[in-house]
Design a protein around this nucleic acid. Structure first.
Lengths: 203, 203
DNA sequence: GGCACTTATATCTCCTTGATATGTATCTAG
DNA sequence: CTAGATACATATCAAGGAGATATAAGTGCC
């Protein structure tokens, strides 16, 4: 089962929006797919060359004075066909690597407070994610009104909003559970060593 | 800002549970972090060598007859220190690559039904994810009862459950929106070309 | 006996990321 | 006016990372 190169289809998809240079492709990806997909020049330029070699795109060189010539790539019918074929293939899903979970997994080996600090940090990150998506939603609605792609693009933004709400709910739940463990430990420590009273911080 | 190698800390973390060989580390990761983290032999073996070179672990060879000798790695105090230091560093979060969103983003260029099919596929995947996590939760509760790590491990499972519920909710919402577009298009097609009536499928 | 699977170590290729190199043009703050 | 930042445009490199494959013996089953 030779791994299929999804970057290739991301580039193909962007080219389906119109002829572009490698530089423009990168910028377009950042400004559209950027929230759930990324590509680097290190992939884009070799992919463009292979697309031409496979007959999925053609390239034409635009002469420019004072800066490197633009290499503009245009999708061929075969290229559009390859894109449609990939779109029809079944989707995969991968949770991916989640750093907060890696840290939390080993968290029982150190004071509960350390894990709670990590969770509070992560809550801030998740909140930032949520407001970022809200901004994008407003921007899309005001600048792309009437475009047939709008509902689809809003769906990708909504994915991010559902995700960030889920992260926040998970933070709430987990902070509650670890908080209870901390109180429990604090209580037992208090009973064991009376005198060190009213366990300091509770912000 | 040289990218820090998180795989190194995953290996360090696993070694904090006890001395292990590269093979055992791989298996242990799959059976514990497996739902949100993965490592391949191609990373584990070079990392183990570099851990020894950096003084973060020691290796000892157990002679075996009939099969390759076991190289068992043990965390040093410096290694445990490096792990704790990394645990204290701020966490990052990355939504990562989401294939369904990449496909959906280009979905407006083809019939709505195609995108709805993708969403229904994705719903099945998300449901599978949810039941997988439920199974893990039950298994953890019944086999690890009383272990101080249990609440932390359950928290990582809960993350997956929150995530799968969010994916399902997003599917509901998006199927509703695209379904409305489809009905709208069907309606307009009906008005435009009367005669081809009662637009076939609606499952 | 043959076949599939598991234990165990290790390497290889390819994908992917992020940094860097090169060089001009334009914009901006001091 | 000019130094520095940013945009345009192409391209390469070193690492990080995933997955398949190589090797080799042991175990269980038909």
């Amino acid at each position: 089962m030779p791994r299929i190169n999804k970057s290739k289809y991301a580039v193909l998809g962007i080219l389906s929006l119109g002829p572009m240079s490698g530089y423009e492709i990168k910028n377009t990806i950042e400004g559209s797919l950027g929230n759930f997909w990324s590509e680097s020049y290190g992939q884009i330029y070799p992919i463009l060359r292979s697309l031409v070699a496979e007959g999925l795109a053609t390239s034409r060189t635009e002469e420019q004075t004072g800066r490197p010539n633009r290499h503009v790539y245009t999708l061929t019918d075969a290229g559009r066909g390859a894109l449609l074929q990939w779109l029809a293939e079944p989707v995969e899903y991968d949770v991916g690597r989640v750093e907060i979970l890696l840290k939390l997994f080993f968290g029982w080996q150190l004071p509960v407070e350390d894990s709670l600090t990590k969770l509070r940090e992560f809550r801030t990150v998740s909140e930032g994610l949520g407001s970022k998506y809200e901004g994008i939603e407003q921007w899309l609605k005001s600048t792309q009104a009437g475009h047939p792609g709008l509902p689809y693009w809003l769906a990708t933004v909504s994915y991010g909003q559902h995700l960030s709400r889920a992260l926040l709910a998970w933070c709430d739940e987990t902070e509650g559970i670890l908080g209870a463990i901390q109180e429990d430990q604090g209580h037992r420590a208090e009973v064991a060593t009376p005198g060190r009273n009213g366990n300091g911080r509770d912000s």
